[in-house]
Design a protein around this nucleic acid. Structure first.
Lengths: 228, 228
DNA sequence: TCAAAAGTGTTCGGCCTACACCCATGC
DNA sequence: GCATGGGTGTAGGCCGAACACTTTTGA
């Protein structure tokens, strides 16, 4: 399942099926695995050739669906993946595919509705305890822009102030030193930030039942303050 | 991958392969999926018939491994599962299978070492934010016993005091009203507890970036997506 | 000088750890 | 009594949410 923040909302790329079963219904992009490729390679291949998605900033496996009747007529196991595309990418999708708002999805073919619901839950959860935002955001951004991106993904407003503090304290973001120009209405220019790393990391593992670490061991010490 | 707390340590059930490839090496119990069964049904079937594991208190999918050369000679995709067995169960395992301490595992066939490492990480993580302990613990227990179980799984000591407070606050445990007998050395009798629910629940979804709920909303509600 | 937008200081509350202290039992 | 083990009270720390306040710009 490929998703991207477009026009201020989280959207999912769907494909309208041409043939039976479920002809005319929306489904996720799918395809078979070759004998000489991994699942990840197969996913990347199908996405690139079928829907022109070549800028996957993150790809992770969700799970394998195996209900016996999930595809009528024959036995098909399907392993689903979550792919994230940054806002700066705009694939040249074919006519039978289009983006759909995550909060307004159509009925879907097979068990793809379950897959999408699971995937959306996972992205939203991971925003809270990993640096997964790197895969949705552009290379550089202001905190206001990042807040809008998070809000679009989560489906609710996100405080700019607290977002900045949390992500900087966790060392997920760093200031680039650059500033965005003020708008025509004036206002203080916004500092530009970037994600420190562009591979998925758990930045805040759940802390319960762990003994309190020695005060010196904490890599919790922040870097330099974002002002210079 | 089946695991259980035995003799105060977390152990994994392994099977010694008789034939090539990897003859003589330890591997996880495996088996093919039938055309008319789900993956979960296939796992339960193989575990029951091959290694007499019939008391799976919890079974969850881990992921699908697809490296091209993972099985020499032919293409095999494998979907791995995590199965948990409570301490009260003692399967009658055949001669070619045996339990191995999680902290002292042998070299393993195929990519099974990776699977085991991944599974152990998942169990340990989920102890912190779900009620997954129900699948390892007996029906009733004292807090001292549960603490030993957690310690065995996590590989480090767990404070009885704080474990009790955390799990009761989250409404994961409830007192049965019964008491364990004091030992011969005396001491106050320990209250007996049980897990309130015996299906996996996220009891403490990661709270970051969420607006503060209305104070009247009571204890935290579950329902967020699983984190993994 | 004022409005607008960004960033910081500070308070508040929740939750978890640690540790001291109280309770119940057998000898 | 007193040792032994279980349970509770309480203090301290960390972290995040909320919000007021300061900073920096354009008109």
């Amino acid at each position: 399942m490929v998703c991207q923040v477009r026009d201020g909302t989280l959207q999912v790329l769907l494909w309208r099926r041409a043939r039976a079963p479920h002809a005319g219904n929306w489904s996720l992009p799918v395809g078979p695995v070759g004998l000489a490729e991994t699942l990840e390679e197969a996913v990347a291949r199908h996405l690139a050739t079928k829907v022109d998605v070549r800028d996957l900033a993150h790809l992770e496996q969700l799970g394998t669906w195996s209900a016996v009747g999930r595809v009528p007529g024959r036995r098909v196991l399907a392993t689903s993946y979550l792919g994230l595309v940054p806002t700066t990418s705009d694939p040249d999708t074919p006519h039978d595919t289009s983006w759909h708002r995550a909060d307004d999805l159509p009925a879907m073919a097979f068990d793809h509705g379950d897959v999408v619901a699971y995937a959306l839950g996972r992205v939203r959860a991971k925003l809270a305890y990993t640096n997964i935002g790197f895969a949705l955001a552009p290379e550089e951004f202001t905190m206001a822009e990042l807040s809008k991106l998070y809000a679009a993904t989560l489906g609710r407003p996100v405080s700019v102030t607290n977002l900045q503090r949390v992500l900087v304290r966790r060392d997920v973001l760093e200031a680039t030193g650059g500033f965005a120009a003020s708008g025509s209405a004036g206002g203080r220019p916004a500092a530009r930030y970037r994600f420190r790393r562009h591979t998925l990391e758990v930045t805040d593992a759940f802390p319960v039942l762990r003994p309190r670490g020695p005060a010196t061991a904490g890599p919790r010490q922040p870097g330099a303050a974002p002002r210079s």
